[in-house]
């Protein structure tokens, strides 16, 4: 991720400059083929005319963007009104992704702090445990989550058994289910970078704060959090960005009512019913949005790193 990689001091001598450029060539090639080319393709496709059986006709048009933002009636001949459908889907996605990020931060920070303060030899075990879910495919995990959360699923069975509730709670096919799915899918992305930051944190600073009459909460707020902010920002980016484009959790857990951007885009490229230029346009709008947020966060990150460098 843009902000997460810290650039170390490198050899700046002239002699190595040209060698360095040559050595970087493979990286540039990989980036070009796997990042720049697909994005460029998307950009081009978003300005093309749709082919009804999927695919595109090579004719330039702004129709895809027009369809995203404006409603011109069924036959396209009425005066343009703002089309709220897709904007609302975007808004719901941002809101869901934001909430998932906040929840992941609230649970992830204490978890990361806990792991980083264990004795060195047990830390590895904890980190390993955190990554275990990643040995199973996300699709399978999300489907399991669906079984776990449904009305007659283990969660409701358990709650009924304890007597906390009398009737099953409806979780599946709600925003809450999407939220649980997102939170569950991306929590480790929050824990790991924060863990890495807390592990590097100089705990003598906490002692110094306590020595200067700061209680535990004040120490956390004024000393610990500012010192590990690079990890927090990185974690937030790593949870927010994939949550924003997620489609498995909204599709499988949220049902049709709780559509998110990821699902909208996915629909456009599925089978013969899709609209490739519209899907490409929605992707470009999402990408632009993410870039704006990333630039903002990267600036924050740069500031945090400048301040946290001892």
């Amino acid at each position: 991720m843009a902000g997460a990689a810290a650039v170390g001091g490198s050899v700046r001598s002239e002699t190595y400059a040209s060698a360095r450029n040559w050595l970087l060539l493979p990286s540039w090639a990989v980036l070009g083929i796997f990042v720049l080319a697909p994005v460029a393709m998307m950009l081009v496709y978003s300005f093309l005319t749709k082919e009804f059986r999927g695919g595109v006709i090579w004719e330039f048009t702004l129709a895809a963007y027009d369809q995203f933002f404006f409603d011109r009636g069924l036959f396209g001949d009425e005066p343009a009104k703002i089309e709220w459908t897709y904007i609302l889907i975007f808004w719901r996605s941002i809101w869901q992704a934001g909430l998932a990020t906040v929840l992941a931060l609230l649970i992830g920070f204490p978890t990361a702090y806990f792991i980083a303060t264990r004795p060195a030899h047990t830390r590895t075990v904890w980190v390993f445990l955190i990554t275990i879910p990643y040995w199973v495919n996300l699709l399978i995990r999300t489907v399991s989550m669906k079984f776990l959360l449904r009305d007659q699923g283990p969660l409701n069975d358990f709650l009924l058994w304890t007597g906390l509730i009398d009737d099953p709670i409806r979780i599946i096919n709600t925003n809450a289910a999407v939220q649980i799915g997102l939170f569950y899918s991306y929590l480790p992305f929050m824990v790991l970078p924060i863990y890495a930051s807390v592990e590097r944190y100089n705990f003598a600073l906490s002692e110094a704060a306590a020595d200067l009459y700061a209680d535990k909460w004040t120490t956390l707020r004024r000393i610990v959090i500012p010192s590990v902010r690079p990890g927090i920002v990185a974690g937030c980016i790593l949870v927010f960005v994939p949550s924003l484009g997620a489609f498995l959790a909204p599709d499988l857990l949220g049902g049709a009512k709780n559509f998110m951007i990821g699902s909208l885009i996915e629909e456009q490229f599925k089978g013969n019913a899709g609209n490739w230029p519209f899907g490409a346009a929605a992707s470009m709008i999402l990408l632009t949005l993410v870039l704006i947020i990333l630039v903002f966060l990267a600036r924050q990150q740069a500031r945090a790193e400048r301040e946290a460098t001892p």
Binding site: A204, L205, E307, A308
Partner: peptide, 14 residues
């Protein structure tokens, strides 16, 4: 009500 000067100073870097 005692204060400490730490071995590696432990100044708050931010």
């Amino acid at each position: 009500p005692v204060n400490t000067v730490f071995q590696n100073y432990a100044l708050f870097p931010h």
